[in-house]
């Protein structure tokens, strides 16, 4: 019944909550989970940190742990839960909602589990959020996680 569950991840905490819920459901239905990250090129909300001015500052920045990439974070969560049937995919596109809908159609997904608000807080307010678009468009059931 629920053979394949798609979890779009973007590195936000709600996306990881969604992954946890998907694993809880997947464990019951013995389903395969696909964690999908859509990398947005030229995303100005994720500018690289500024260049260090002094040696001391450079050291300080090197010591700070780097933010994990969305898929790394997802991999970590899956490893903690010990979930085996999971694949990680990455795509590059400027329109995440369209790509997610496309992935659902192409890979015969039975359910989508996603966070209600990801990284784009302002974009979500202005242009309509990814989760709203996906939940209205796809044919399969969608779980919106907070």
């Amino acid at each position: 019944m629920l053979k394949k569950i798609l979890v779009p991840v973007d590195g936000s905490p709600t996306a990881l909550n969604a992954l946890n819920l998907a694993m809880a459901i997947g464990a019951k239905f013995d389903s395969e989970i696909i964690a999908l990250h859509i990398n947005i090129p030229y995303d100005y909300t994720k500018l690289p940190p500024r260049k260090p001015k002094t040696e001391a500052e450079a050291e300080e920045m090197a010591r700070k742990p780097k933010n994990p990439t969305p898929l790394d974070a997802a991999q970590k969560v899956a490893a903690v839960a010990g979930y085996g049937k999971i694949v990680f995919r990455q795509m590059v596109d400027t329109n995440p909602a369209d790509k997610i809908v496309e992935a659902v159609e192409q890979s015969d997904i039975d359910m989508v589990v996603m966070g209600n608000r990801g990284m784009g807080v302002w974009a979500g307010l202005l242009m309509g959020s990814v989760s709203a678009k996906v939940s209205q468009t796809v044919e399969c059931p969608v779980i919106i996680v907070k």
Partner: peptide, 17 residues
């Protein structure tokens, strides 16, 4: 109703087609 519920509810919402 479903989109309002999914946006404002504090618990996970499953939307069935």
């Amino acid at each position: 109703v479903s989109s309002k519920v999914s946006q404002y509810a504090t618990v996970p919402v499953l939307i069935v087609k």
